[in-house]
Computed example of a mutant assay.
Amino acid sequence: MLKKFMFPALIVFVLTGIYSFKQTVALHTFKTHNAAELKDFFHYTPDRIPFMSSHRGGPRKGFPENCIATFENTLSHNPSMLEIDPHYTKDGKIVLMHDPTLDRTSNGHGKIADYTLEELRKLRLKDTEGNLTDYQIPTLDEALQWAKGKTILIIDAKDVPIEVRAQKIIDNKATANAIVISYSDEDTKKCYALSKDIIMEVMMGKEENVTAMDKSGVPWSNVIGFVSHQLPENKAIFDEVHKRGAMCILGSSRNIDHQYTTGKINAAQLNQGYLNLIDHGADVIEADLGIEGGAALMPLQQGKSSKAKYFRN
């Protein structure tokens, strides 16, 4: 009788173990529980911990852009914010996808705006190699709910106004785990008028951007500055933003990431490139290669810091 039930029991045990492993994979997460903690997390201090923002969530082979499974894969390697892209559907829902069209990153064709959410649910996403996966297109609401207790989403604009993106954060009670990108002084003021809690990634590449922010009436505690996609010749802009208590983001996708993926630099040069961006004044690096960048920055995250309480490794 024992032999009769041993094999099925073993199968159940093994399957249960596999399921448990998938559910308990350790993620490197940010511990921000409310809007005040998120503001403190982004407040610049000289002992800040440099970290990554993974462009489009950190896609790679097997993991598509703007996909929750991809987000989890990125966080399984290192702590990272996740930059995401919203688009309206035909029936007024908001889904995540970088392009306004479906062809490059899914098995669909045409404009996202020509499909309802129900129709889009039937599609599957492609990875960076163009291979079809089993993953579906997520909604912004789903991403905001998933991010709680895990990471911080950076919601780009695309065709969704800043007040709509901000309202989504409010509706999902996600002010501790999401920020919005603002491309104009008008949008920055509009978002702040809607909510004093929501933090914005504001374009901060020139000194006049700093001056405009000073005059905007929006406190610097609601801002993280995006400096450039290229390394500025003058690091004064970093110093000016830091003096005002805000952190700076610098993009690597158009420089060292591209150089690495096209074979112009090797892995060691890529790692040093990330460290150079931090040495130049960046606090956060927005990268296409969020996992590689996170590995390069990991040694910088080991020292004592007032920000350490917000990192869970």
Score class of each variant (00 low, 15 high):
Ser184Arg: 09
Ala69Asn: 08
Glu208Ile: 14
Arg254Val: 10
Gly149Arg: 04
Ser54Tyr: 03
Ala287Glu: 06
Val95His: 03
Thr261Trp: 04
Thr188Tyr: 03
Arg56Gln: 15
Ile137Tyr: 09
Ala157Arg: 12
Asp214Leu: 09
His87Cys: 11
Ala296Asn: 04
Ile256Gln: 01
Lys264Trp: 05
Met298Gln: 10
Glu201Gly: 08
Arg48Ser: 11
Arg165Ala: 00
Asp103Glu: 15
Glu201Gln: 15
Lys126Phe: 03
Val202His: 12
Leu120Ile: 14
Arg48Trp: 09
Leu132Cys: 04
Asn73Pro: 07
Lys158Thr: 00
Gly273Tyr: 07
Gln259Ala: 15
Leu123Phe: 12
Cys248Phe: 02
Leu140Ala: 04
Gly293Leu: 08
Asp171Met: 04
Asp214Lys: 13
Pro138Gly: 01
Tyr310Trp: 07
Lys264His: 13
Gly149Pro: 11
Lys122Ile: 06
Ile265Lys: 02
Val164Lys: 09
Asn78Ala: 11
Val210Ile: 15
Lys304Leu: 07
Leu96Val: 08
Asn209Pro: 02
Lys215Pro: 05
Lys4Gln: 13
Lys173Gly: 05
Asn276Thr: 14
Phe71Arg: 00
Met247Leu: 12
Lys31Tyr: 06
Asn73Gly: 04
His98Val: 01
Glu37Thr: 05
Arg165Leu: 04
Gly294Ser: 03
Gly273Leu: 06
Ala308Pro: 03
Gln230Leu: 12
Glu240Ile: 05
Glu163Asn: 11
Val12Leu: 15
Ala287Pro: 04
Thr24Pro: 03
Asn73Lys: 14
Gly92Trp: 07
Met1Val: 09
Thr16Ile: 11
Lys190Arg: 15
Ala26Lys: 15
Phe13Lys: 05
Met1Lys: 09
Phe238Tyr: 15
Ile68Pro: 00
Cys191Pro: 03
Phe311Val: 06
Ser54Met: 08
Ser221Thr: 15
Lys309Leu: 02
Ile224Cys: 05
Gln301Thr: 05
Lys190Ala: 14
Thr116Gln: 12
Ile11Trp: 11
Ala193Asn: 14
Leu120Cys: 09
Tyr115Asp: 03
Thr32His: 01
Leu153Gly: 00
Ile11Gln: 10
Ala113Thr: 15
Glu286Trp: 06
Leu194Glu: 10
Ala35Cys: 03
Asp283His: 13
Tyr88Asp: 04
Glu292Ile: 08
Thr105Asp: 01
Asp185His: 07
Ile112Met: 02
Pro161Ile: 03
Lys243Arg: 12
Gln136Ala: 12
Ala69His: 10
Phe42Gly: 00
Thr175Phe: 04
Ile179Asp: 00
